[in-house]
Simulated scan of single mutants.
Amino acid sequence: MNTVQDFDAGTLFAGSASGIMLKGWAESSPFTPQKDPCYRFPAWMADIVAWMACGHDPLYLFGPTGCGKTSCVKQIMHALNYPVYELTGHSRLEFPEMVGHHTVQNGSMHYEYGPLTLAMKQGGIFLLNEIDLLDPSTAAGLNSILDGYPLTIAENGGELVTPHPMFRFVATANSNGGSDHTGLYQGVLRQNMAFMDRFMLVECSYMSEEEELDIVRKHAAGTLDDAALVQMIRYANAVRRLFMGHDAEDMDAAIEVTFSTRTLIRWVLLADMFRRVGKKEPLRQALDSALTFRASHASRMALDELFQRIFG
């Protein structure tokens, strides 16, 4: 049987003891996220560590798309051997999808637990991504769970699920729950104030240039030198500024696509592959496949202009 274990946060994440203890599991489970050997923690991971150490309030991470909210949670939980039960929110998501439903197995009815119930019973993280896409009335149905009360499953004969002491609730979103004032994220809904009041909030952002350089350097494996990688990161940051509605390189434009770190890595890998297969403009053609082909015609023109300004 898996047992709870204390981990020193400093030893686990920085290589030297800090005296800040985090509870995790002695062994991993099938639901424990896999380790990403190229992953680098962002500066705001310290806020998640502080949350893990301080209490059991639910956690709400918000920030621009692709800044690594979900990845950061998963890599921390990998280090703690924590199981993660994940679900992505949407406007039609209903409470039974989180709790569970009846299924037919071998000709008889069987109740199958959903990710929220599994996390509560087993002592894991319930990770609800895109929580600001939920209908506020559906989100409000979580209030008693967020307050630490048991879950009653009426559909399963009134089963009472008492939350395991290791159960934690984590939500990610692009907005802070007050709706999207930028117009960048379709479907984001303003959440109930009483619902949001139950969370500890952490604002997440893209990594610094130095942090991203360290990551993409590992993926490039020497096929692109640092000078080229720095240019690619600066281009990615300029695209992000355009996406957020800020001028980039004196350009007055707004675009509907942006660079996640994941997209940046894809660009690096494709640029190397296209170079090896003899593409005439491997960097430019890799950019098209990694990002530009997803953009509208107007955005493509802006992205092309930006590419010319940075790469010449």
Rank of each mutant, 00 (worst) to 15 (best):
V239P: 03
A236Y: 02
A236P: 09
S205I: 03
L224T: 02
R190V: 03
A236N: 09
R234T: 04
D252E: 15
R198S: 08
L224C: 09
D250E: 13
N237R: 11
G222V: 09
M193T: 14
E256T: 03
V216L: 05
M244A: 15
D226F: 00
I255Q: 03
T223F: 00
E249L: 09
F199K: 14
I215K: 10
L229Q: 07
A236Q: 06
L224I: 05
A253C: 08
L229H: 05
E203G: 13
R241C: 15
A194P: 03
S205W: 06
A236V: 08
M251L: 15
D247W: 02
L242C: 10
A194D: 01
E212A: 11
Y235V: 12
V216N: 13
V257Y: 01
Y206G: 08
A248P: 04
S208Y: 06
R240C: 06
F243M: 01
C204S: 14
F195H: 05
M196F: 02
F243W: 14
F199I: 07
M251F: 00
F243I: 04
Y206A: 05
R190K: 15
L242I: 13
L229E: 08
M251S: 06
I233C: 01
R241N: 14
L201I: 01
H219S: 08
M232T: 04
E203Y: 11
Y206E: 04
R234C: 03
R190C: 07
E212W: 06
V188N: 02
E249D: 12
G222N: 11
D247L: 06
E211C: 04
E209T: 11
V239Y: 06
D247H: 12
D252A: 08
A227I: 14
F243Y: 15
A227N: 06
R217T: 14
S208E: 09
I215T: 10
M251V: 08
M244I: 03
V188G: 02
V257D: 01
H246Q: 15
T223G: 04
M207W: 04
H219R: 14
D225S: 05
D250A: 13
A221Y: 05
R240M: 07
V188E: 01
F243Q: 02
G187E: 15
M200W: 08
G245H: 12
L213A: 07
E209S: 13
M207C: 10
S208T: 15
Y206W: 12
L229T: 07
C204K: 02
A221T: 07
E212S: 12
E209D: 15
E212N: 13
A194L: 03
G222T: 12
S208I: 07
E203V: 12
A254Y: 00
E209M: 02
Y235T: 12
V188L: 00
M207R: 11
R190N: 14
L184C: 10
R217D: 04
Y206D: 06
A228M: 12
E212G: 09
T223D: 11
R198V: 05
M232Y: 05
A253Q: 08
D225L: 01
L242K: 10
E211K: 10
Y235D: 02
L201P: 05
Y206L: 03
C204D: 07
G245Y: 06
D252N: 14
A236H: 05
A248D: 04
H246L: 10
S208N: 08
R241L: 15
F195C: 06
A194R: 08
M196A: 05
M207H: 09
R234Y: 02
D250L: 05
F199E: 10
K218C: 08
